[in-house]
Simulated scan of single mutants.
Amino acid sequence: MSEVIRTYFFDNEEDRLLEARNIHFWRALAGHVQADRSVPSDATVLDIGCHRGGLLELLHERFKPARLVGIEPLVSARRVADRRLARFAAYTQLFGAEGWSRIPDSGVDLVVGHEVLQYISDLSLLMGNIRRVIRPGGFVYLALGCHTENPLWATWKHELEALGHGVYDHSPLQIMAAGARAGLAPSVRPLRDTGWVYHDPSVSGSFAYPSVAALLEHQFRHKLLFRFECHT
């Protein structure tokens, strides 16, 4: 996950639509965080791959943490996030890919990440960084549908590579094992397993679905939420 100097992740319009597509997943992630009661008062929240700051904004609205931290290698997106989050009372820090070294040991209460693991080559390094910064008793929630057990990933991977993105194959069990090796207790569940699926097939772009069956399979079966607990 190296520093990227490019204007957009996809393009201007697609980046704008990306947030509208992700909001339902972000709300589901926040719901699991709330159900686990895993955000203490005066919390520090870290979003890995925070893009334009939408998930951090949602978490601030839901939990009112004292400090927001984002790691985002895409320079333009980081600038948007900085402007967006500046209006909050929470202290905000946004870093590029090198930002891990600037986060203190045991300095974070909650770590989140949405669809970011496919851009990270070294899961062991990532989990080691997470383990260092998460406080004892803290939680990590990483949502991912772009993994090797999802039949759609093979197609989506080629689309991302054609756009110039470096992406990597990870299986769910590999992700869980990497966390366990770093000293984090892993668990997993579907991110969503009920409710309405919002999708507009008239909007062209990346990450298309060949059928409604595939859409439902993705959202209710293959879109996973990995949870890691730091016990000590």
Rank of each mutant, 00 (worst) to 15 (best):
V112W: 06
V75E: 13
A162N: 10
T148F: 08
G128F: 03
A143E: 10
G128C: 07
M127G: 01
G49I: 11
Y119G: 04
L152I: 03
R78P: 08
W156C: 02
C50G: 02
H170Y: 03
G70I: 00
G128Q: 09
L56Q: 09
R84E: 00
G54P: 07
I120L: 13
L163N: 13
R135M: 02
L160P: 00
L160F: 11
G99C: 00
H170M: 03
E61V: 04
E57K: 12
L144P: 04
A154M: 13
W156Y: 13
S121Y: 06
H147K: 13
R83N: 11
A154E: 15
G166M: 08
G166A: 12
I130H: 05
H158V: 10
R67L: 00
L144N: 15
L74A: 07
R67H: 04
R84T: 02
L144A: 12
G96R: 10
G49K: 14
N129T: 00
M127W: 10
D109M: 00
N129Q: 15
V112L: 12
E98H: 05
D105K: 07
V133F: 09
L94A: 03
L125H: 01
R135H: 05
P151I: 08
R79E: 15
G54T: 11
T92C: 07
I134D: 08
I134M: 14
G137V: 04
P73I: 07
V167E: 11
P104S: 06
V111S: 06
E115A: 13
Y91D: 09
G128N: 12
V116K: 13
F88W: 15
L58W: 07
G164S: 07
Q93P: 04
V111C: 11
V133H: 12
R67A: 04
P104I: 02
I103F: 10
R83M: 08
A154F: 12
H170K: 07
P136Q: 15
I130K: 05
R84V: 01
L94D: 03
Y91W: 01
G99F: 07
S171I: 03
P104Q: 05
V116T: 15
T92E: 05
H165K: 00
C50Q: 07
A81E: 05
S106G: 01
Y168E: 02
P65Y: 04
Q118K: 08
Y119R: 08
G113S: 15
S171N: 08
G107L: 09
Y141T: 08
E161M: 13
